[in-house]
Design a protein around this nucleic acid. Sequence first.
DNA 1: TATTGTTATACTCTATAACTATA
DNA 2: TATAGTTATAGAGTATAACAATA
Lengths: 170, 170
Amino acid sequence: MDALMDKPASRRRPRAGAVASAEAGAQEDLSLGLLNSLVGFHLRLAQDASFRSYSRRVGLRDLKPGRFAAMMVIYNNPGVNQTALGRAIARDKSTVTPLLQQLERQGLISRSAQAGDGRSFQLHLTAAGERTLHELLEVALEHDRKLDEIVGDRKPDFIALLKRIWREVG
Amino acid sequence: MDALMDKPASRRRPRAGAVASAEAGAQEDLSLGLLNSLVGFHLRLAQDASFRSYSRRVGLRDLKPGRFAAMMVIYNNPGVNQTALGRAIARDKSTVTPLLQQLERQGLISRSAQAGDGRSFQLHLTAAGERTLHELLEVALEHDRKLDEIVGDRKPDFIALLKRIWREVG
DNA sequence: TATTGTTATACTCTATAACTATA
DNA sequence: TATAGTTATAGAGTATAACAATA
């Protein structure tokens, strides 16, 4: 198993400061070793970069990815309840509650009692919510267009892989 | 732009409870609409799933992905300083500090003053650190093997895409 | 008993800004 | 002035567990 621990021999004990003094663009200068071949590591960095980029774009108009996803699901599944929504976006119901409370306070969604079941709410977007979603969608698509440029025609394949990871690794 | 907002007509106003009553495996039952074609959304879910899976595996032995990545970089770049390390793993130096303090307290890394520059530390793994990294690496590889199964021979391509996202979208 | 939603609580990760000490 | 590292602080996001109302 020691092959796992191999690192470039020339790096074993570099003269002091050789690596440490690399300043700008350091991430290219540093060796990542095996880290470089781990899907999980790159998944983390890519997601991180994508998230930050989206946040920057959407920044002024407030609203974060989690809320955007929630609104999309409500839009596409009017009347859905909180628990099912949570499952759809892979978040616990206790995470969903404050999210929806905020959206409701902002007048973007409505929560109405369900006829048959007194425990659930039916979730709907308000007119204002649809307008907001519309704007957010444009920002999201603009952001994703940037990703599209990178992914190109491998996009369907790429998304299929990400879906399988989500479903099979979780 | 209204094509953006299209949703399945049959879902426009489902009879009450139709969607909300879907319980197990709800994420397949709910329509994600355009969300489904956004790279960013799937990136988020896939990363999330991968992270949770890794945490579960490594759980008992403590230590999270961020720390693992830091140890890998130190291992592969002995003598690196904290700022450069931060850049390599895409984290601010103020995020790196407590991380390294903990690793030092646990005897996994050493921080020694640098000859030429009194401001920097040189980071090295201790013998215990190398042993721990070795174990963690096995867990990480085991985890990544699961991802490998999914990605298959598209792995180089897949990683290349993730890297480009990280570098170009950030 | 099981489920929906709420709350209390706590934890992890992260960054910004202000600081010290060096350069 | 500029850089390395630390600290104080704050904020996002999340989950677990206990709970009330309802099924």
